[in-house]
Design a protein around this nucleic acid. Structure first.
Length: 573
RNA sequence: UACCCCGUGGUGUAAUCGGCAACACAACUGGUUUUGGUCCAGUCAUUCCAGGUUCAAGUCCUGGCGGGGUAACCA
């Protein structure tokens, strides 16, 4: 895998702009040609696929340049952060396939140093303690008006700042602000807040501190402390770059890390804002953060997505500054591509219809030979039980079929995969007009699914022997939202109105190949002609629940829709 | 409104110094097939607009238009 990545990026025709800039720096021997990146999550939530893009970029880039990537928890806000998130984030990054080695850091580990630096700034006359309330600070900044305390003496500032640290003031009472330029067209430069008071205990430093550095005061300096050379972040920090540089310049830190911004990932039919994901969980529109419909890494993991499929997606979408939305099929396709090569095939009937083979002996049973994976001979073969009464998919029989329908219909012959050719000789219906049983005859000469006379059979359908079937629940998962851009709602409307009511369909009584009874949690299969399914890790032992990870492409569904369209058109005319 | 960033097929991402617009996915055509899957072949753009510089502009310059971000004691 590492080899592939290296090949792609070093020998490939093109390189994204971030890699381009990093390589230019290396070529210019900046930082002695060293490359250090970092992934800086705030431990206040779970990682989602948007984070995966940043993780892949930072780790892959460091790897390509023989550098390293640090994991740094940006834990400067005790009100929001918790250790459970630290643990979850580490677990998710590892699962994705990345290793930060010993480079696990916390912004909170630098509190003392950041404090010292803040005092330095005060002494230089570049920071002051401000008494304005939050509302007033906002107002003054908007108007470009100086804080009344902007010209406090260094001595007073130092004393007040120490008092802040000592816990003498209540929350919101005072802040430490950088003295930059209240007239700057860049709002972030209008005397940004560096420290605020918060008496909430911190997940790592407990009650040791009651003043906390803001992102702007902590981030660049944390990068510098760790020797980060390239600090990659998302577009919304673009306006902060001059401030990022101002801090490091004032502190005379050398060498200085370089901030580069890139566009974050957006996916169709998906919502990736932390706030919105939280609402989905809290308002119970999903089971939890690891609901298989969630775009969180734990959700995707539970659903059966592989780390490499996610990495492939991140690699394919590239890195740029254009704010784009990736079609979710891009993700689905990356997974299909991988599972097509690796997932063992099994037969599973989701919507069972009974088939009786009238010329097959009542009590006979035999085992037919089936290929586990046509894409991978080393996956071997297996024996599947066959008998007189079978289950087939309800959708594979039509009393009256449209043209180009290759499956079972009266008088028509199809192949039962790995079994025999069967011809439909009749069917039964109940009072409601629903087909309850299909009657067929089989050709004993076609065992295995081939005929010696070279007779052509257009349809091949899957089946499960009724007597041997393993019954289980299957959950069909679809997009959580029914619109491509769920967040696009009319003024005042809620994105939840775009929730897809059919995102989760539970189907019980599915008839599966008996071997599937032994499937273990997380194990992935292709149910032939349906899609890829995995055993829900939350299913109870001995009664696996299968989740549909992703469906197979279905060109018949497309064709049928098209035919139906033509039909109604000609009828209407 | 102010400031910053970005506009290349349907969707994304490329295109050394200014030099034949490439790749992936989607869509559509056809072929192969014991999965209507996979696989294979083919089709699909006058680079947001208008000027300018140049032998030559996706690329450089000017002006529009369009989209996004920011204007937190969040990150």
């Amino acid at each position: 895998m590492a080899d592939d990545r290296e090949k792609d990026s070093h020998e490939g025709r093109s390189v994204d702009f971030v890699r381009g800039q990093v390589r230019a720096d290396v070529a210019a021997d900046k930082n002695g040609g060293r490359v250090v990146t970092r992934f800086p999550p705030e431990p206040n939530g779970f990682l989602h696929i948007g984070h995966a893009k940043a993780i892949c970029l930072n780790f892959d880039l460091a790897d390509e340049e023989d550098g390293r990537c640090n994991l740094r928890f940006d834990d400067t806000n005790p009100a929001a952060e918790e250790d459970v998130f630290v643990q979850a984030i580490k677990q998710d990054i590892s699962w994705l396939g990345y290793d930060w080695g010993d480079e696990e850091f916390y912004a909170s580990g630098y509190f003392e140093k950041l404090y010292e630096w803040a005092e330095d700034l005060i002494r230089k006359g570049c920071a002051y303690v401000c008494d304005l309330s939050g509302d007033l600070v906002r107002e003054y900044r908007a108007e470009g008006k100086n804080s009344p305390q902007r010209d406090r003496s260094v001595e007073d500032n130092l004393e007040l700042f120490r008092n802040m640290r000592a816990g003498e003031y209540s929350e919101g009472k005072r802040t430490l602000r950088a003295k930059i330029d209240m007239a700057s067209p860049n709002m972030t430069l209008r005397d940004p807040v560096m420290y605020r008071i918060n008496h909430t205990p911190h997940h790592r430093t407990g009650t040791q501190w009651c003043i906390y550095p803001t992102y702007d005061w902590a981030h660049g300096q944390s990068d510098a402390i760790e020797g980060v050379t390239h600090s990659l972040c998302s577009l919304e920090f673009e306006n902060h770059r001059p401030l990022y540089e101002w801090c490091l310049e004032k502190l005379e830190v050398n060498p200085r890390p370089r901030q580069i911004e890139f566009a974050r990932l957006n996916l169709t039919y998906t919502v990736l804002s932390k706030r919105k994901l939280r609402r989905l969980v809290e308002e119970k529109h999903v089971e939890d953060w690891d609901d298989p419909r969630m775009p969180t890494l734990r959700g995707l993991r539970r659903r059966g997505y592989t780390p490499s499929a996610i990495r492939t997606l991140c690699q394919r979408v590239g890195v740029a500054k254009f704010n784009s939305t990736i079609d979710i099929v891009q993700l689905e396709n990356a997974l299909r591509e991988e599972l097509n090569k690796s997932a063992p095939r099994r037969m599973a009937v989701l919507d069972p219809l009974e088939v009786v083979i009238e010329n097959y002996p009542d009590d006979r049973e035999e085992f037919v030979d089936a290929v586990n994976n046509p894409e991978d001979q080393s996956a071997g073969r297996r024996k599947v039980p066959f008998s007189k009464v079978l289950w087939i998919e309800r959708g594979d029989f039509r009393e009256e079929a449209p043209r180009k329908y290759f499956r079972l219909k009266p008088g028509k012959e199809v192949r039962l995969r790995y079994g025999y050719y069967v011809t439909c000789t009749g069917f039964e219906k109940n009072a409601g007009g629903e087909v309850t049983r299909v009657i067929c005859t089989y050709d004993p000469e076609t065992r295995g699914g081939d005929s010696a006379d070279g007779r052509k059979v257009r349809g091949t359908i899957h089946w499960v022997s009724a007597r041997h079937a393993f019954e289980a629940e299957v959950r069909l998962i679809d997009h959580l939202f029914r619109t491509t851009r769920p967040e696009d709602v009319p003024e005042g409307a809620d994105f939840l109105q775009n929730l897809n009511p059919d995102s989760l369909t539970s189907v019980s009584g599915c008839k599966l190949e008996p071997g599937l009874a032994e499937a273990f949690p997380g194990e992935l299969f292709q149910f032939e002609r349906h899609g890829y399914f995995c055993v829900d890790s939350k299913s109870l032992k001995g009664s696996p629940v299968f989740l549909r990870t992703v469906a197979l492409r279905d060109s018949w569904a497309k064709l049928e829709k098209k035919l139906a369209g033509e039909e109604s058109k000609s009828c209407g005319a």
